[in-house]
Amino acid sequence: MNGCGAHVRGRIYYENRLCHAMDEEEAEEFLVTGHMAGNETLYKEIKQVKAGEMARVSTRVNKSGGINALRYFSYRRGMEIH
């Protein structure tokens, strides 16, 4: 297997280890609407960045490291785009 590509009953496995469990509620929403709302994905542990956002990865030891979504653009009604 290459990466987390083996799907078995809504779960992804990598080298016989569970990688991520599928979120049944989000899967149902996707089947009904055809898209994912907000930052949700089909998997509980995986989030997505929205339009106008970027992911920032921090590995600093003295501060809390992690991944955060930062908004870099926000469209406001009546705003001129050049």
Rank of each mutant, 00 (worst) to 15 (best):
N2C: 01
N2L: 11
N2E: 14
G3Q: 12
G3C: 05
C4A: 15
C4I: 06
C4Q: 10
H7Y: 09
V8K: 15
V8P: 02
V8L: 15
V8N: 14
R9P: 02
G10R: 02
R11N: 15
I12C: 13
Y13E: 14
Y14M: 13
E15C: 10
E15G: 15
N16T: 08
N16L: 09
C19H: 08
H20C: 10
H20V: 08
M22I: 11
D23M: 00
E24P: 09
E25K: 10
E26V: 03
E26T: 04
A27T: 06
A27W: 14
E28M: 09
E29T: 07
F30T: 01
F30L: 15
L31Q: 10
V32A: 13
T33C: 12
G34L: 10
H35T: 12
H35M: 09
M36Y: 13
M36I: 00
M36Q: 13
A37F: 05
A37V: 07
G38M: 00
G38W: 03
N39C: 10
N39I: 02
N39V: 01
E40Q: 11
T41M: 08
T41G: 10
L42T: 02
L42H: 04
L42G: 15
K44Q: 09
K44F: 06
E45A: 13
I46M: 12
I46L: 15
Q48H: 05
Q48F: 03
V49H: 06
K50I: 04
A51L: 09
A51W: 01
A51C: 05
A51H: 01
G52W: 07
G52V: 04
G52I: 01
E53L: 01
M54R: 10
S58R: 06
S58G: 12
T59P: 00
T59R: 11
R60Y: 08
R60D: 14
R60W: 02
V61E: 13
V61G: 09
V61M: 09
V61S: 14
V61A: 11
N62R: 09
K63I: 03
S64F: 00
G65Q: 05
G65D: 09
G66W: 02
G66K: 03
G66F: 03
G66H: 00
I67A: 05
I67W: 04
N68M: 01
N68H: 04
A69N: 07
A69D: 05
A69F: 12
L70S: 03
L70R: 00
L70V: 12
R71T: 13
R71H: 04
Y72A: 01
Y72S: 01
Y75M: 04
R76G: 09
R77Q: 10
R77C: 00
G78D: 12
G78W: 01
G78N: 11
M79A: 06
M79L: 04
M79Y: 00
E80C: 00
E80V: 06
E80Y: 03
E80N: 05
E80S: 09
H82A: 07
